[in-house]
């Protein structure tokens, strides 16, 4: 029993949540910026640029608007960061980490997933800025839109993996029967997940809640200094969670060898997923209007995910 708690504590604070998720998330953010720069024929910032940003932000002063709700304004970024760190601790890594025993099936993840988005909403609405309020409403709309295909995708994977609701069970099923990425029934669900990633990260077509040119960064408009740094950390960890989950759901392929082979292999898979779903997508698309994005998510990713769900039911 005590052992379980220590286990969970390590998972939350060091690996795979905590320090590991922060470090890899920031590194991935840096690689994303370089990749986008290269696609636009530029040199791009150093890989560690997100880390430098955090260091700089932590030295700047915190300004809080007079009419803002102080407590919620300060709590929102912390809540978001904690939510994403807990998520990171719950997602297993094939061949390396089985997840906290007895905690965290896909429904828990689905709920925790919305915490970072909720943090944006609280931050935006408590800042008392009209742009923050617009960002809040946009974030809410897009969250409702992308959660439908996400739910359908998770269900399709669970049904296909013999009604296994735990991520560890899903990975075990795929290790025995081949990854879902090579399974024709599950390919539509994978495509839906590919579209969900930029939706939740606010990249490319779906850079709507934080649109710089329209709502001057929306919810984070009034944040400055260390509080903004917390939001940056949150989004780095969230990126890592989304990528790890994608790998766990669709391609938890193992290489022969122990942890030291499979952990880098996992990171490489995450990197490939990020370069396609975030960097390439971000560099090659513009921004949709919020109503277009809502309809887009209800039409294409949802129907793709439903096709997979139906297929998984019929072929059981």
């Amino acid at each position: 029993m005590i052992n379980d708690y220590i286990h969970a504590g390590i998972a939350l604070l060091i690996f795979p949540g905590g320090l590991f998720a922060l470090a890899t998330g920031l590194l991935f953010k840096g690689m994303d910026r370089i990749a986008v720069a290269r696609l636009q024929r530029r040199v791009g910032p150093p890989v560690l640029q997100p880390v430098f940003d955090i260091i700089k932000l932590s030295t700047k002063e915190i300004l809080i608007p007079e009419s803002a709700n102080d407590a919620i304004f300060k709590l929102a970024p912390m809540m978001g960061l904690m939510g994403s760190l807990v998520c990171a601790a719950l997602v297993p890594i094939a061949g390396v980490w089985k997840g906290i025993p007895g905690a965290g099936d896909i429904f828990v993840l689905l709920y925790l997933f919305s915490l970072p988005a909720l943090a944006f909403m609280f931050g935006g609405s408590s800042s008392s800025s009209p742009f923050g309020a617009i960002g809040f409403s946009r974030e809410m709309v897009i969250m409702f839109a992308y959660e439908i295909p996400l739910l359908a995708t998770l269900l399709a994977v669970a049904v296909r993996a013999d009604w296994s609701l735990s991520l560890d069970g899903i990975i075990a099923y795929q290790t025995a029967n081949g990854p879902f990425l090579l399974d024709p029934v599950m390919i539509p669900a994978f495509l839906a997940y590919l579209l969900f990633i930029p939706g939740t990260m606010g990249a490319g077509l779906f850079d709507i809640p934080e649109a710089e040119e329209e709502v001057i960064e929306g919810p984070v408009l009034e944040y400055s200094g260390p509080l903004l740094a917390l939001f940056n950390l949150m989004s780095a960890v969230k990126l890592m969670v989304v990528l790890s989950l994608g790998v766990a759901l669709f391609f938890p392929l193992l290489l022969p060898g122990g942890i030291w082979v499979n952990l880098p292999f996992h990171l490489v898979k995450c990197l490939v997923l990020m370069l396609t779903a975030v960097s390439l997508f971000r560099a090659s698309t513009g921004r949709l209007r919020i109503d277009q994005a809502f309809i887009f998510f209800l039409k294409y990713p949802s129907s793709l995910a439903y096709v997979s769900l139906l297929g998984a039911f019929l072929l059981r």
Binding site: R33, R42, G44, P45, P46, E212, E213, I216, E217, L221
Partner: peptide, 11 residues
């Protein structure tokens, strides 16, 4: 100038 770490910020 992003290579110097610069970035346009909206706020």
């Amino acid at each position: 100038v992003e290579r110097l770490g610069c970035k346009y910020c909206g706020s």
